[in-house]
Amino acid sequence: MAEAIKQKGHLAHAGHGSHDSGDHGHGHDHHDQEEMKTFGFWLFLITDVILFGVLFATYVVLRNNTAGGPLGSELIEMPGIIASTFILLTSSFTSGIALLEMNKGNKKGLITWLIITALLGASFIYLEVNEFIHLVHEGANIGTSAYWSAFFTLVGTHGLHVSLGLVWMTVLIVQIRRRGITPVTKRKVNIVSLYWHFLDVVWIFVFTIVYLMGVM
């Protein structure tokens, strides 16, 4: 439809070469801008890689500095961690399906899969909060030792990222419901799913380095 109107515009403006090229230039600019915004977000993710790198370095360096307090291997309960790992893995997959639905132009499917992703993310946070409560209850809080400071900072920063992603996803779902699938909401869904995959990657390293190596 829009294409047809454009065509008519072309016919009407036959001969006005400058106007034609200007018009196309504009459409292309808009497309470029969405792509630039996605790239800008990608650069943010790269800085986040460095942020988490620093936290991982801190954790690894301080892993033996428990100041006579409880050890990670004594308090960590793996079943909950394993459950949250698979929950986050699955949510990374469902956010991908949301993207596929969006590319098909299926607004309802897109919203449904985003809601499923957000619910999985929420249960991940629920498990994490429960784990933290358990740890504090057992006498390991952020001030107990250098080890626990590094632990809570690293795992907590990841948890904060996931919580932020949940808020963002909820707002986005409302926006899609109102505006439908437009180039702008499309870009936003693309970005939020990139963010979600990124958080899954970070969690894989938290799982490996903090939990698996912690209980080894």
């Binding site: 790239f39 990608w42 790269i46 890689v49 988490f52 790198g53 991982f56 690894v60 360096v61």
Partner: peptide, 22 residues
Amino acid sequence: RYNLISLIFGLVIMLTIVAGSI
């Protein structure tokens, strides 16, 4: 491939920080 190049750049910095600290 700006995405890939910026990713590699980020990973190099990240690995330098982690390996260097350890």
